[in-house]
Amino acid sequence: MSELISIFLSVAVINNLIISKFLGLCPFFGVSKKIGNALSMGIAVTLVMLVASIATWFINNLILIPFEIEYMNIIMYILVIAALVQIIELFIKRTNLSLYNALGIYLPLITTNCAVLGITLINAQESYGLLESIVSSLGGGVGFLLVLVIMSGIREKLEIADAPSSMRGLPVAMLVGAMLGLTFFGFGGMI
């Protein structure tokens, strides 16, 4: 159990996907200007990460490893993630239209989100079991959501801040990222 908690904390805050692994920077800088959007995006990413981790674990252990074709992992993972995103999108559209309206536009973007592919690659690299993969992807999603929401809150304020013209927008967002990174170092002693 403590092993699982340590995986969760490590992926969620200490080795946060955005802040310390630089995965998923596009949504971090792109959609994170409103807290509501950030929340929806974060939930959508967490959902896809969870399903993708489970699917890639089965692919890894039922196809790639038994047939000794682990070198095919990149092509398999990316196709599976693309297909999963389509299926999840269809499923949500059929079952819950209001949820679809909230998350819908973010789902297609997730296919090329490095955070999702990144977490499946990390799980494979660390050779996590099924349960560990699930915990690690949940941690990754929660960490992603957390940073996206924090960042969007800061950026709502930044919009009205009086920054030098050449710093406005992306450059100042990068500097905020740097400061967030420094604060997250505080979590280092947790494991």
Partner: peptide
């Protein structure tokens, strides 16, 4: 022999 540890950034 090879030993495997869990570090800060991974294995």
């Amino acid at each position: 022999f090879v030993a495997t540890g869990k570090g800060y950034g991974g294995t």
